[in-house]
C-alpha cells in the first residue's frame, strides 16, 4: 500500500478520536462556562471538579432504553441519527492541522486530504448533515419533530447560501479553494509601515468574517438560531422522540459540527496554525476555542429568534451584505491586478 495513503488513514483515525474526545469535554466546558456565566457551580460531583461528568453522561446515554415510537417510519428513524453522526466528523478531513512532520522516518502530512476544492467539500458535507435532522423529524411521527425538521430544512438552506457566499471574498483574494493553500497564504507577514501584521483574512475580510460567524451559528443549530430544537417551543424538535444512544448521536453530531466549523473558521479567517511564535496545532486549537467560547457565550446571553425573523435576517440583511462584500472584493482584486 502507498505509504502516504496509509499515513492518511492513520491520521484520519487519530483526528476522529481526538474529535470525539474533544466533543465530550466540549460538553463539560460548555456546562462549566454556562454555570460560571449564570452564577452557579455546574457539574462538580463526578470526579475532581466534575471532570468525569462527560464519561458518566456517555454511559448513561448508552445504557438507556432505546424507544422507537409505534407509528414511526422505522427504517428512516434508525437511519437518521447515523447519517447525522457519520457526516459530522467527515468534514474535518480537509482541515490542515499544521505542516508535515516526520514519524519513524515517514513524512506524515497533518491533514487527511488536500483537495483542491476543499472549501466546497466542507460546505457540501455540512449541508448533507441536515438530512439526518430532516429525516429524523419526519420519521418520528410527531408533529413537533416534523416542525423541527421543516424549520431545520429552511434554515440550513438559507444559511448555507450565506455561509458559502461569505467565503467567496476569501477565495477571490487567495485564488484557491484548497485550505492548505489558504493557510499557506495567511502565514506571510504584512508590513504596513512600522506595523507587522499577519496576513489573516479577517483583516482583509472583516465583514465576511462577521457574516461567517453568524451563519456558522445558524448552520450548527445553536442558540439563538436553535429553532429546530427550540426546547421551549418544540420540546427538542427533531429529537423529541429519540432516546438513549440514538439521541446521543444527534448530540454528538451537533457538538462535532461545532468543533469542526470552529476549526474551519479559524483556518479560513484566522490563519489556521499560524501564530506569532512557533506555528503549530496549538494555535489552531486556541483560535477554535475562541469560536467555541463565543458560541457558549451567545447561548447564555441572547433570546431565540422567531422563525420568520430568522429567515428575514438571512435574506434581507445578510445576503445583500455578503453580495456587496463580494462585489467590493472583486473590484479591489481586479484593481490590484491592474485589470481595471
Amino acid at each position: 500500500m502507498d505509504a502516504n495513503l496509509l499515513s492518511s488513514y492513520i491520521f484520519a483515525v487519530v483526528v476522529l478520536n481526538v474529535l470525539l474526545g474533544l466533543m465530550a469535554y466540549m460538553t463539560y466546558l460548555e456546562r462549566k462556562l454556562m454555570a460560571a456565566m449564570q452564577d452557579r457551580v455546574g457539574p462538580n460531583r463526578t470526579g475532581p471538579v466534575g471532570l468525569l461528568q462527560p464519561i458518566a453522561d456517555g454511559i448513561k446515554l448508552l445504557v438507556k432504553e432505546d424507544i422507537i415510537p409505534k407509528h414511526a417510519d422505522r427504517r428512516i428513524f434508525l437511519l437518521a441519527p447515523l447519517l447525522s453522526f457519520v457526516l459530522a466528523p467527515v468534514a474535518a478531513a480537509v482541515i490542515p492541522f499544521g505542516d508535515s512532520i516526520t514519524v519513524f522516518g515517514h513524512e506524515v502530512n497533518l491533514y487527511v486530504a488536500d483537495i483542491n476544492v476543499a472549501a466546497l467539500y466542507f460546505l457540501a458535507i455540512g449541508s448533507m448533515g441536515v438530512y439526518g435532522i430532516i429525516l429524523g423529524g419526519y420519521a418520528s411521527a410527531n408533529r413537533y419533530s416534523l416542525l423541527g425538521g421543516l424549520r431545520s430544512a429552511a434554515q440550513v438552506i438559507s444559511y448555507e447560501i450565506i455561509l458559502g457566499l461569505s467565503l467567496v471574498g476569501v477565495f477571490i483574494l487567495s485564488g484557491s479553494l484548497s485550505l492548505v493553500e489558504i493557510v499557506n497564504q495567511q502565514s506571510e507577514t504584512l508590513h504596513l509601515g512600522p506595523l507587522q501584521l499577519p496576513n489573516w483574512f479577517i483583516l482583509s475580510q472583516p465583514l465576511a468574517f462577521v457574516i461567517f460567524l453568524i451563519a456558522a451559528v445558524a448552520e450548527t443549530n445553536r442558540a439563538p438560531f436553535d429553532l429546530p430544537e427550540a426546547e421551549t417551543e418544540l420540546i427538542g424538535g427533531f429529537h423529541t422522540e429519540y432516546s438513549g444512544f440514538r439521541f446521543s448521536f444527534f448530540f454528538l453530531a451537533e457538538y462535532i459540527s461545532m468543533i469542526v466549523i470552529s476549526l474551519f473558521g479559524a483556518t479560513i479567517f484566522l490563519g489556521g496554525t499560524d501564530g506569532p511564535i512557533r506555528d503549530g496545532v496549538w494555535w489552531l486549537a486556541l483560535k477554535a476555542f475562541i469560536f467555541l467560547f463565543f458560541y457558549i457565550w451567545l447561548r447564555t446571553t441572547v433570546p431565540r429568534f422567531r422563525y420568520d425573523q430568522l429567515m428575514g435576517l438571512a435574506w434581507k440583511v445578510l445576503l445583500p451584505l455578503v453580495l456587496i462584500n463580494i462585489l467590493l472584493t472583486g473590484f479591489i482584486r481586479l484593481w490590484g491586478l491592474g485589470m481595471l
Binding site: 454556562m34 436553535d226 427550540a230 433570546p303
Partner: peptide, 11 residues
C-alpha cells in the same frame, strides 16, 4: 426562558 434567554431564569 420561554423566549430563549436562558440565563434570566437563574438570575
Amino acid at each position: 426562558l420561554d423566549i430563549g434567554a436562558l440565563s434570566m431564569s437563574l438570575y
